[in-house]
Design a protein around this nucleic acid. Structure first.
Length: 565
RNA sequence: CGGGGCGUGGCGCAGCCUGGUAGCGCGCCUGCUUUGGGAGCAGGAGGUCCCCGGUUCGAAUCCGGGCGCCCCGACCA
């Protein structure tokens, strides 16, 4: 365990000028990380200790569910990526070797692990199996940001499960969920497991582990008993008062009013009493479709993409003009094109009616009732907002950083790479796969974000670079210094990781550095210590000062440490 | 990819408009004093002013091009 006088811990008083995120500022100031280039970071010794403590927790939990650790290369032939259709990904770093062969730097390791599985797994007797490694991932991110939260190179624990069939995959997936719950609990993080978008190529299901924090780039919708990424979240909308029903739709003149806002104001109705039409062109087949949501709702593009089972783009004004009506006045009544009606509008319809565009310039229709006045396919494509409800409970939306993810891959990779086994009947069957990521760097940064205060970092006990930060105020030759040296040895003998600040600087500087670095307990040895016969221990979380008797002090400190968060 | 901003000792910044000795705070080194909240005094080291080109007697400063970095948005298998 290091003496600070000999240790590389370059603390700074000022944060980097261009830093925004708390974790970015504090991890640089505390001497944990240093930037090399955009999205490229070095981990200095203390920072790497935290990283490796997280890695060890993850390793223990992976081993506990039967995972086998191995190591796959980062530099890979392009060939396998071509076979799975992922060579075209823009974030994939591509290069050539000296012979001109196409190579890639892996952004994840499905291709290579599946290649091995295809070769090595032959029989149903070989399954199930979980393989994992800790390896660098390379991603040519369009926009790295916030220190170590979004980088172009980072270590990830990725594991891969191999099973006989769908049921087997479900079981492996459940074991990972249990393991991940334990990992994040042990790391001392606040976290949510949320349902996530499976993506276009994704397969059969996905969950994400989200650590709530201000610097988070994702949003999660939360209610008691419910947690989902807003990308897929579903909820009941807040009700809106609708105008009464009419026997048939009736035109109202609305010259120059092309926005929901303008029409609602003009008719003295809430925006939610209007229906908003959003015409899109499906990429597959180029079909024009009209998506209809309540006027106060927004379309969630990911949910819409999933509902369409296709990428899409908004229709151009010219396409709208030619095939539906004047932009700003379009609506679902009387059109020929397919209508997708959002459930948020359909649910609210009973006993009232809506206002829609009339497909004629300067006019809207009132008294419109879905079903009676236009046919539709019911979909759920609206963006959930705070205040909606799920099973009666009110939804709130929080920013969060993704620290782990679980994917049911199914046969997405085993099929193109020919990963099969022989079943009991001697038939070749595709292996069912899952993949599971865990980001130690993001976990560390999220912990910094969640627990930092005005003085600096406050690490959860399990992932602090050191357990105890021992500060001596004794001068060379003093009794205090002799006591400090003895405590240093005794604390280590009890198995604690101790950072010993034996530098010849003033107390203020030492205290400030200790609070910046954020080890869970700070032990101070000064003149007071000997005079009072007590040792001062500051608990970092809350900056609470405690004392323990000098007699048996090391044991008492260890005891106290065990009670900390 | 769209928008905005920034590049000057290790960190944070001034100087640039109006061209003429490269400066400040912190940090660092030496000595003395100090020692429970970033201490004082004295002395000292350290900079291709992002790069290339141009204008000029002279460029950190003006002009052109390039590179790098940050923030907002889009994207994020």
């Amino acid at each position: 365990m290091p003496r600070l006088s000999e240790y590389l811990l370059p603390t700074e008083r000022d944060p980097p000028a261009d830093a925004e995120a708390i974790s970015h500022k504090l991890m640089v100031r505390a001497g944990l990380i240093r930037q090399v280039g955009s999205g490229l970071w070095s981990w200095l010794p203390a920072g790497w200790r935290t990283h490796q403590r997280i890695v060890q927790i993850v390793r223990e939990e992976m081993d506990a569910i039967g995972g086998q650790e191995l190591l796959l290369p980062v530099l890979q032939p392009a060939e396998v990526w071509r076979r799975t259709g992922r060579y075209g990904i823009e974030e994939l770093f591509k290069l050539k070797d000296r012979r001109g062969a196409d190579m890639v730097l892996a952004m994840t390791h499905e291709e290579v692990i599946t290649t091995h599985a295809a070769q090595a797994i032959r029989s149903y007797r070989d399954l199930p199996m979980i393989l994992y490694h800790f390896q660098v991932k390379e991603r040519d991110e369009p926009r790295p940001r916030a220190g170590v939260l979004r980088t172009r190179e980072f270590v990830m624990k990725d594991s891969y499960s191999f099973d006989l069939d769908r049921e087997g995959l479900e079981a492996s997936y459940e074991r990972h969920i249990a393991a991940y719950d334990r990992m994040f609990d042990r790391c001392g993080l606040e976290w949510y497991r949320v349902h996530a978008d499976v993506g276009m190529m994704g397969g059969h299901g996905a969950d994400e582990y989200m650590a709530p924090c201000a610097a988070g780039e994702n949003e999660v919708a939360l209610a008691p008993g419910y947690a989902a990424n807003v990308e897929v979240a579903t909820a009941d909308p807040q009700p809106v008062a609708l105008p009464p029903q009419l026997t048939a739709p009736e035109a109202v003149e609305t010259p120059g009013m092309t926005t929901i806002e303008a029409v609602a104001t003009h008719l003295a109705l809430p925006p939610g009493a209007l229906l908003k039409a959003f015409p899109v062109i499906k990429q597959e087949g180029g079909e024009l479709v009209m998506v209809v949501v309540r006027g106060d709702h927004r379309v969630n593009e990911i949910k819409l993409r999933n509902a369409l089972r296709s990428d899409f783009r908004p229709a151009h004004p010219q396409e709208i003009e030619e095939r539906i009506g004047p932009p700003g006045y379009i609506g679902p009544v009387g059109t020929e094109i397919p209508i997708l009606l959002d459930a948020g509008a359909a649910a609210n319809g009973a006993g009232g009616s809506y206002v829609t565009g009339a497909n004629r310039s300067g006019a809207h229709l009132r008294g419109v009732e879905p079903g009676r006045d236009f046919g539709f396919e019911l979909v759920d494509v609206r963006a959930v907002v705070a205040g909606d409800t799920h099973a009666g409970a009110t939804i709130r939306i929080e920013p969060a950083i993704e620290v782990g993810n679980l994917f049911k891959l199914g046969t997405r990779y085993s099929e193109p790479l020919g990963a099969t086994y022989l079943d009991q009947g001697g038939n070749a069957k595709l292996i069912w796969m899952g993949s599971y990521g865990f980001g130690p760097a993001r976990t560390a940064a999220a912990a910094v974000e969640q627990f930092a205060d005005a003085k600096g970092i406050s690490w959860p006990r399990a992932i602090s670079p050191f357990d105890v930060h021992l500060v001596t105020l004794g001068k060379p030759g003093s009794a205090e210094l002799a006591l400090s040296e003895r405590l240093y040895d005794e604390l280590q003998a009890l198995g604690l990781a101790v950072l010993y600040d034996d530098r010849e600087s003033g107390p203020g500087e030492k205290f400030a550095d200790a609070e910046l670095l954020g080890c869970p307990a700070r032990v101070t040895v000064g003149r007071r210590t000997l005079e009072a016969g007590e040792l001062e221990v500051q608990v970092r979380r809350g900056l609470e000062a405690r004392t323990v008797p000098l007699e048996g002090a090391a044991d008492a400190v260890a005891e106290l440490w065990r009670t900390l968060a």
